[in-house]
């Protein structure tokens, strides 16, 4: 708890690592693979607790993904972890060994977005959602806070089929209430409003909620929806928001091509076509900087999101 009684912010990679240890106790079929990043992906706690069920495959992600597929085909529930960008670098192994081989591998791509900061573009997962979304049978989950991460990991132990879990390096403010229950495939309305709907995912949900508070001071009423399950996406909730608020602003720490924005546009085009503004990394490379400076630069902090929303509502 922070001094004011609000829960402390927790990175989703930390919430993932802790949940994995808890679930490892109950589920002997859970195994974990990593590619020399166990300190960064937070699988190290599991490795220490269950060394016989942890496999450090070295800096060889293609082999790691294939070994995870084989473990799954022989009845295990593998969590296969690396930075999101290094997973997408082995897209063919995800496509063939994990999806087309009908496995239950859970890929955990950490260090997503420009929010990883100083390491720069080579370590930033910025195209992973777009690539994973194109694969039949693949599900994609990006939790927005500690509670949602724990719920998602618990859900994934039982999920049928392959899945991609996107986690963050940066700490995430609590956006869900105590007692929150994760529901796969269901979006969560966190604030109601009538002028536009801000649809966010993962690390941008907290800033989007704060942006809605800033907009309220200017007399702009913003609904905020958290899409933690990007595939399959909650079309009903999005269509209702489109019908009721007429404008949709998507916000993500990912390329605006093929990510959450793309998924929302595709879902609404057929059901409830309205104006959609896609906000995120605008088809450019990320760069080095502090996470805060980068969120300000790409207008992904509360002030930046509010400014984009104001322009959108004003018809600019």
């Amino acid at each position: 708890m922070a001094g004011d009684g609000t829960p402390a912010a927790v990175a989703s990679r930390d919430a993932f690592g802790d949940a994995l240890v808890r679930l490892g106790e109950i589920h002997p079929e859970v195994v974990v693979l990593d590619a020399d990043l166990s300190e960064s992906t937070r699988t190290r706690k599991f490795a220490k607790k269950f060394p016989e069920r942890f496999f450090d495959m070295g800096i060889a992600e293609a082999n790691m993904l294939g070994v995870a597929a084989g473990l799954s085909l022989a009845g295990k529930t593998p969590f296969c972890c690396s930075f999101a960008c290094f997973i997408t670098g082995r897209f063919d192994q995800v496509r063939m060994s994990i999806c087309y081989s009908a496995t239950n591998v859970r890929i955990v791509g950490s260090h997503c977005g420009v929010a990883i900061g100083e390491d720069g573009y080579s370590q930033m997962g910025l195209e992973d959602i777009a690539l994973m979304r194109a694969l039949p049978t693949m599900s994609i989950i990006q939790p927005a806070d500690e509670l949602e991460t724990a719920g998602a990991v618990e859900y994934l132990v039982e999920h049928k089929g392959p899945a991609f879990l996107r986690t963050t390096r940066q700490k995430l403010d609590r956006v869900n209430k105590d007692g929150y229950v994760f529901q796969f495939g269901k979006g969560v309305m966190l604030a109601d409003g009538k002028d536009l709907t801000i649809v966010a995912t993962g690390g941008t949900v907290g800033p989007a909620l704060k942006a809605a508070a800033l907009l309220a001071k200017d007399g702009v009423s913003a609904r905020v929806i958290n899409i933690h399950t990007i595939k399959p996406i909650d079309v009903d909730l999005l269509a209702k928001a489109a019908r009721e608020t007429k404008r949709i602003l998507t916000v993500e720490d990912h390329q605006i091509t093929g990510g959450l924005g793309g998924a929302v546009c595709e879902a609404l085009a057929d059901r409830e076509p309205v104006r959609v503004r896609r906000h995120g990394i605008p088809d450019v490379f990320g760069e080095s900087g502090t996470p805060e400076a980068l969120y300000q630069h790409f207008k992904l902090d509360a002030a930046g999101i509010a400014a984009v929303a104001r322009d959108f509502v004003a018809g600019r």
């Binding site: 294939g66 070994v67 597929a69 084989g70 473990l71």
Partner: peptide
């Protein structure tokens, strides 16, 4: 593999089945 009994993994993009076999062998050891 999901279409026919006896096929243990989907292959055809070369280089991948070797790793899958290693995963199966690891599972057997466990």
């Amino acid at each position: 593999d999901f279409l026919l009994p006896g096929i243990e993994a989907s292959t055809g993009s070369l280089g991948q089945g070797f790793s899958i076999g290693i995963g199966m062998a690891l599972a057997s050891k466990l």
